[in-house]
Amino acid sequence: MYHTETINNHTFRLRYLPGGIFEMGSDETRKSLGNESPIHKVELSSFYIGEYLVTQALWKAVMGADHNPSRFIGDNRPVEQVSWIDIVEGNQDNDGQPAFLHKLNEWTQTSRPEGYAYRLPTEAEWEYAARGSEPYEYAGSDQLKEVGWFSENSHSETKAVGLKRPNGFQLFDMSGNVEEWCVDKYSDTFYQECYERSTVKNPNCQKEDARYRLARGGSWGDYLRFCRVSFRDYRPPTDRDGILSFRLVLASA
Rank of each mutant, 00 (worst) to 15 (best):
D173M: 04
H155F: 12
S230K: 00
P236E: 08
H102N: 13
W126A: 04
K31R: 12
K201G: 01
E208Q: 06
Y136M: 07
C182M: 12
A160G: 10
S45D: 15
T11M: 11
I39C: 14
D75F: 05
P18S: 14
E125N: 09
R13M: 12
G176Q: 05
V161Y: 08
P203E: 01
N177E: 05
N204A: 08
G132L: 12
S83M: 03
P166L: 09
H10D: 06
D142F: 10
A57D: 14
S154L: 07
D188T: 11
S198P: 00
G140W: 09
Y118P: 03
S230W: 08
L248P: 00
L58C: 06
F226P: 00
D188K: 08
I85M: 03
W181M: 02
A57K: 14
K159Q: 14
S187R: 09
L101V: 13
R77M: 09
R112H: 12
A129N: 13
E114C: 05
V178R: 01
F226Y: 15
L214V: 15
D239T: 10
P98Q: 08
A253Y: 04
S198H: 07
L101C: 09
F22P: 02
G64H: 07
H40S: 08
K185G: 04
P203V: 01
D95Q: 10
G148Q: 09
T55R: 04
Q92L: 13
N68D: 15
H10C: 10
S245N: 00
N202D: 15
F246I: 01
A124H: 07
Q92G: 12
E134S: 14
Q143C: 09
P237C: 02
D173V: 02
L214K: 04
R165I: 10
S141M: 10
A124M: 04
E123H: 04
A124I: 04
F246P: 00
T108H: 06
G64M: 08
D173P: 05
N202K: 02
E127H: 07
I39E: 11
R119D: 13
Q143S: 10
R225F: 12
